[in-house]
Design a protein around this nucleic acid. Structure first.
Lengths: 154, 154
DNA sequence: TAAGATTGAATGCTCAATCTTC
DNA sequence: GAAGATTGAGCATTCAATCTTA
């Protein structure tokens, strides 16, 4: 805990950005999780894991790369992959080159689940976020969101 | 599950906004929770609850208003307030006007916790988000984040 | 000793059920 | 019956400990 003697509080301009941002950060997972849960029974993080795998060569990635891609801890990923594995959507195997490594691979059933889930998910992403934005807004968003995301480390 | 015959997938421009946005939405809670947890032992949602209460008249709010302000379900709020209450940072009381209502009120200890927590929290908010943004970025962010947040419902 | 990954316990969140008052 | 709020069960996430290989 590094406590400076005098804190530079957020300005009103910063607050006007911060308040809606935490609102988004709180609400968006609820909205995405709920849609995916009720429709196909997975969380958004699990959906994200499956999409990363489906886009990878041979449908497989090292656990640590996958964790980086989805921006979650290895522990969280390991638990999530266990759940996906239990449902038959993912399999695990030892990595070829590194004896310590594990790779997660999406199964055919996993790809089918993704096909089933994708339309409803995209529809929700549109209605929750993009439908209310102009093209200019989207460019602005890409711009500033990328700048924040780059700087953000776990 | 409303599945249209033909899905309008995200364009590459939309993807360029969406990917960093989910990265932020995934990482920011981890970053904020970790700082507050290790420094003062509360989550960011609990911190947010306390700040809302501290800013309210008499330091108190109806549970349902508080839930709206923090953008979480009543159930989640009720559990969180129970935890805060157990630590002596919040008390509950029956609402005056409505026999069904409950009000949560921040205690003196709760205000002290907030004073203790605030500098470290603001420092983290700065280093994680604002330090890497120009004034123009912040205006853009406020603009587009407000537009998204307005449209976003649980 | 460090890196990759997993595990179990503790805590937080969601969902459905419930209770009380309107 | 609906609105405000709480509760408990089940699942998700964090943290620290552990194991294996580099």
């Amino acid at each position: 805990m590094t406590t400076p003697e005098t804190t530079r509080w957020l300005s009103s301009e910063e607050m006007e950005a911060w308040l809606p941002l935490i609102r988004i950060v709180t609400l968006l997972p609820q909205v995405l999780d709920r849609q995916l849960r009720t429709d196909v029974g997975i969380t958004h993080v699990q959906y994200h894991i499956l999409t990363r795998l489906s886009a990878a060569v041979d449908g497989q990635l090292r656990m640590s790369e996958l964790a980086d891609g989805v921006a979650i801890s290895l522990s969280r990923l390991s638990h999530a992959v266990s759940t996906l594995e239990r449902h038959g959507w993912v399999t695990r195997a030892a990595a070829k080159d590194d004896g310590r490594g594990q790779t997660a691979m999406i199964t055919e059933e996993g790809r089918q689940l993704l096909q089933l889930a994708a339309p409803g998910h995209v529809a929700k992403v549109r209605s929750a976020v993009f439908d209310n934005l102009t093209e200019a807004d989207i460019t602005q968003l890409a711009d500033v969101a990328n700048r924040i995301a780059e700087n953000l480390e776990p």
